[in-house]
Design a protein around this nucleic acid. Structure first.
Lengths: 183, 183
DNA sequence: TGGACGAACTGTACAGCGTCCAGTAAGTTG
DNA sequence: CAACTTACTGGACGCTGTACAGTTCGTCCA
């Protein structure tokens, strides 16, 4: 509903992020412009800059936000199963939002709180496999790199590389990595 | 040298690609606009469209072009060494052109002739390790995914993730993958 | 040899982008 | 009640990729 002019919109960082989420869901990454987000809020484009440093900061926030859909593996799970499950869930999530894959890789998305929480949960599981923290960090990175990489591959529309096929390949790859890391 | 008006520029696909290579080398991906390429050739921006479908096609060509700097592993190399060398050389190349990493991942750059040649040479080496062609393709993908993924990670300026450190991690990861694949 | 034809190129223009600047109006604090 | 801060608007700048229409050239065939 359009405010009467002279009224404040009462924006917040969260409101802007929510609008960005909406625009992204409806029109994809290509449709996610500052102007579109502003229009969604019924506000002039520049108004966003009171709540967000610039577009890349908004996109970063959106990237982490999307990870909220992923449940961290419980600490008492069988470690290998838990790790495989998160990674496959991540792969599936990215499959639903292929636009984001390059962004996660480019800025290595793992900066926000959601990403941190997932990383910490994975480190716990690797600890139960006997890995020290530094070593666990390296393995987490290896797992993530392959998962994001396969998700990126799945966005190319090559008949030989359908997402289910690649998902199976990813599963095998994760297995090799975990086996190598705990040998 | 500026042609006298009314003279043809005599552009070709290769000339456009060469200009794009030049602009990219000097001003990076952000500076690679159709206008910049056209200016480099002393030509109106739209002139490019007689030789290139659109910008993404030009960028695709540039991506494959850059791979020409990579020497395919000789077929008689020790397979594991040869594979590790190409992948590390790829990692090093991408380290010099971080801008391109997301693009390689997004369009899975491996469509052009250069990419195909590298893939074929890798498949030969994997064949000598006893892998059938389909299986070799999967392993090639796994290796590439990790290599590009680590290169992407290296573009994030995190003090804990310096390129040399990640290169070492990649080396270990490649080892795990090759070991897993040939077990 | 001339005339048609297609390709190459220019000029102009459009719609869109991120974001800066200056101004105004509202809310908050002394 | 006055001073100040914050949130927002209007307008603009410089840039993008590329579509459209028109002109000029090289080539090929009658």
């Amino acid at each position: 509903m359009p405010r009467s002019p002279g009224q404040r919109a009462g924006l917040t960082h969260e409101a802007v992020l929510a609008a960005a989420r909406e625009v992204f869901a409806e029109r994809g990454l290509a449709g996610l412009s500052m102007r579109a987000v502003a229009a969604e809020l019924g506000v002039a484009p520049n108004a966003l800059y009171s709540h967000v440093a610039d577009k890349t900061a908004l996109v970063d926030a959106l990237l982490d936000d999307q990870l909220a859909a992923l449940a961290p593996p419980p600490p008492d799970a069988e470690p290998r199963d838990g790790l495989r499950e998160v990674m496959l869930a991540t792969y599936d999530l990215l499959g639903r939002h292929p636009d984001l894959v390059p962004l996660y890789l480019a800025r290595q998305g793992a900066r926000g709180p959601q990403a941190r929480a997932l990383g910490a949960a994975m480190t716990v599981l690797l600890g139960r496999l006997g890995l020290a923290e530094a070593e666990a960090g390296r393995v987490v990175r290896a797992l993530i790199v392959s998962t994001l990489g396969y998700a990126a591959l799945a966005t190319a529309d090559d008949a030989n590389l359908r997402p289910p096929q690649l998902r199976a390949d990813l599963e095998v790859t994760l297995d090799w990595l975990l086996r190598g890391a705990t040998a």
